[in-house]
Amino acid sequence: MSNYLVNHLNWSAVSSAGYRLWNAYYYNYGTPMGYNPDAPLPEHLGAWGTALLYQYTSEGRLDGYNGNLDLDVFYGDPGDWDAYTRVDGRPAPEPEPEPTPKPEPVITYTVRRGDTLSGIASRYHTTVAALAQFNGISNPNRIYAGQVIRIPAGSEGPAQPVYYVVKWGDTLSGIAVRFGTTYQRLMQLNGIQNPNRIYAGQRLRIR
């Protein structure tokens, strides 16, 4: 309650009924300040004579928060605090703990001969940098068959198979470069024994 209302209305009945005073009086209005347990109470506090809680500024400053805060001094004891934080005579309910987030399932991929990190990244719609960081890979050009690669959460599952129809003049290595993979991987996917023997019209699986 503002200091003006405290002193300009008759609160005797309220005070006599045992209700304590929360007083708001800004003794240094317009000046930002920190917490001050010795903030000076006003001399005149109407029917109460003293306050249980005193708000001395609305321009308070505390570390960790960028903005104005109402700062108060509490003059009561633990029993007073308990009495004024109860609802209908019952203790205020404890805040419900935040639910523990469930860990997202981890997708893994086992490297096959001919795989590249860029090819795996493309397959799972992520990036080489993300895979390298997530798996502690210092050299993205050095992975080996049998290595288990963890895929970052949020990445999509394997893409639908992609195919390419060979045109006259194509080479397997040229197709591999075009699609960000290797000719060894294309050989593996398509059961090709000789990388120099492909033909126009041949349908190759890219990934």
Rank of each mutant, 00 (worst) to 15 (best):
Met1Lys: 05
Ser2Met: 02
Asn3Trp: 09
Asn3Phe: 13
Asn3Ala: 15
Leu5Ile: 07
Leu5Arg: 14
Val6His: 01
Val6Thr: 05
Leu9Asp: 09
Ser15Glu: 15
Gly18Asp: 11
Tyr19His: 01
Tyr25Arg: 03
Tyr25Glu: 08
Pro32Tyr: 04
Met33Thr: 15
Asp38Asn: 15
Leu41Arg: 06
Pro42Ser: 11
Pro42Leu: 01
Pro42Asp: 09
Glu43Ser: 12
Leu45Thr: 06
Gly46Phe: 00
Ala47Ile: 11
Trp48Lys: 13
Gly49Glu: 05
Gly49Arg: 14
Thr57Val: 10
Ser58Arg: 10
Gly60Leu: 01
Leu69Ala: 08
Leu71Arg: 15
Asp72Arg: 03
Val73Arg: 10
Tyr75Asn: 10
Gly79Met: 09
Asp80Gln: 02
Asp80Gly: 08
Ala83Tyr: 09
Thr85Gly: 02
Thr85Trp: 02
Thr85Phe: 06
Thr85Asn: 04
Val87Gln: 04
Asp88Tyr: 08
Pro95Thr: 13
Pro97Lys: 12
Glu98Met: 04
Pro99Met: 14
Thr108Gly: 04
Thr110Trp: 00
Asp115Ile: 02
Thr116Phe: 00
Leu117Cys: 11
Leu117Pro: 06
Leu117Gln: 04
Leu117Asn: 02
Gly119Ile: 05
Ser122His: 03
Arg123Ser: 09
Ala129Asp: 14
Ala130Phe: 15
Ala132Gln: 02
Gln133Met: 03
Gly136Val: 07
Gly136Thr: 03
Ile137Asn: 00
Asn141Ser: 04
Arg142Gln: 15
Ile151Leu: 06
Pro152Trp: 10
Gly154Thr: 06
Gly154Glu: 02
Glu156Trp: 05
Glu156Ile: 09
Ala159Asp: 12
Gln160Gly: 12
Pro161Val: 08
Val162Asn: 03
Val162Gly: 05
Val165Pro: 09
Val166Met: 15
Asp170Ala: 05
Asp170Arg: 00
Asp170Asn: 10
Thr171Ile: 06
Thr171Gly: 11
Ser173Ile: 05
Gly174Cys: 12
Gly174Ile: 14
Ile175Ala: 12
Ala176Cys: 00
Val177Lys: 15
Thr182Gly: 09
Gln184Cys: 03
Gln184Glu: 14
Arg185Cys: 03
Leu189Trp: 10
Gly191Ile: 04
Gln193Asn: 09
Asn194Arg: 12
Pro195Ile: 08
Asn196Ser: 12
Arg197Cys: 13
Tyr199Gln: 14
Tyr199Ile: 14
Ala200Trp: 10
Gly201Lys: 07
Gln202Lys: 03
Leu204Ser: 01
Ile206Pro: 04
